[in-house]
Design a protein around this nucleic acid. Structure first.
Lengths: 252, 252
DNA sequence: GATCATAGTCGTCTTCCTGACGATAAACAC
DNA sequence: GTGTTTATCGTCAGGAAGACGACTATGATC
């Protein structure tokens, strides 16, 4: 087909972000309240238009910084400081997903350590960390007894896909360390796995597994007591990105 | 940000297809020759614009049918007939990836059994199955001694990503059966794994593994001799989509 | 300070999976 | 028949993982 600008329909392209963290033993996602129609007042995933001269990953990193102050991290470098892991998730382009116009959204997944309060344009009441089960339940009631409206657009589907990606990816990669501060203990890492998978893991087998997987953890030499009990060794994330053999998610 | 049509730049959205099959013990991809600039005369992945009223997966299925006659298959249904597996791969949106204009391409991955000759608008010389190593080598020479030009646009990257997705996905899913005809033998399935991974597998251990994984293979009762030697049992793909435990790709 | 609760760390045992590989079975070519 | 090819079954050793006992090192409580 020859080049003819009228031969293709114009699309708006956005990036939407599934930003996950672990807070108080629960997997939480960043949600922002919509200020305008459609879905005014409803919670949604953060996101925005891709600019004319921007790559998709640049746009995602920019939105992430705008919403959280996080600095997106090159995936080839181990996670450190307050950098977050950022990767492309999937693209959603149903013709009716936005009632205003044809919008294709390239969703990205970000994994971050537990952060202070979120900010959305400086207005804290319009952004929050919410447990993913709370955001995904349809028409139920939240912990405060207030009715829960489903997320705007197809964001419930996007969030569910992002959560599933995170759950499966920490099996065979060292991505779980992206939820941890730069230095962490084996127990803290185990609580990340428990929160993301929603299961209880045997501390002894987990300890044997992660300390025995080459390149996963590097001891820093320090110890700490953050949870009461015996002090634990501190580790940093090792260079390995793919775990071999993988962590196994317990059956059902 | 309020709704303002001038607030976002317009994009063209395309789908590109990585269509993989196994021919003569080699992993091959479908390539089409470009008829117009840019990259006129160069090989590229098949693809085209997403229409105004089309979902992304619909557009990918339409392009697949146009190029190969394959009927894309709902992933929730086991592969059968001449249906192919089709899934979204990733989205590529570098501002400079198409010199004409801003194009975002949603790449899809299709896996198909070995097919008769491809057709591209009825012109066989403009479409072919080529071994993926041949398409991915840069500036080398093909088997016929003719110099090989790299694929157009960023299609080498897209193809490489698709191949890597296929290689990893047959580890933990039953997707390898998408490369097989409706009924196949354990040996044929093994040769699929060998071609996709580029390794040799022990026939005895492979047989034990696939016949011992629940839901992977269903015996049809028939036997056949397609490769010489003792007749082999025929199987269909079972309902299982996730293999547990997974097939393990040999180290290195 | 003794006791208790909490977490972290090291071992043991059994079971399952895998890789290596011997042996047998059933076809075809000569 | 002999040889070749492919399919299929069996055996054995090594490694990984689940279950779980035991010990260690801290803070909290009496």
């Amino acid at each position: 087909m020859p080049y003819d600008p009228s031969a293709f329909p114009p699309f708006a392209v956005t990036v939407d972000l599934v930003v996950l963290t672990v807070r108080r033993h629960a997997l939480c996602a960043l949600a922002v309240r919509r200020g305008e129609p459609p879905f005014q007042g409803r919670w949604a995933l953060p996101g925005g238009f891709v600019r004319a001269d921007e790559d998709l990953s640049q746009a995602a990193a920019r939105e992430l910084a705008e919403e959280t102050g996080l600095c997106a991290h090159d995936p080839s470098v181990p996670v450190q400081d307050n950098g977050a892991h950022l990767e492309q998730l999937a693209t959603y382009g149903d013709p009716k997903r936005d009632p205003r116009m044809r919008v294709v959204s390239v969703a990205h997944l970000a994994l971050a350590p537990d952060l202070p309060a979120p900010r959305a344009g400086g207005d804290a009441s319009n952004a929050r960390w919410a447990p993913v089960e709370e955001l995904l339940q349809q028409g139920g009631y939240g912990r405060d007894g207030e009715p829960v409206a489903p997320l705007a657009f197809d964001h419930a589907q996007i969030l569910a896909d992002g959560v599933e990606r995170a759950r499966s990816k920490i099996e065979y990669s060292s991505l779980a360390t992206a939820f941890c501060p730069p230095e962490f203990t084996v127990g803290e890492l185990r609580r990340v796995y428990e929160a993301v998978w929603g299961v209880a893991l045997d501390p002894r087998n987990f300890h044997r597994k992660v300390t025995g997987t080459p390149g996963f953890l590097v001891p820093t030499g320090g110890t700490t007591t953050r949870q009461g009990g015996r002090p634990a060794q501190l580790f940093r994330a090792g260079g390995a990105t793919l775990l071999n053999p993988p962590m196994l998610r317990p059956e059902v």
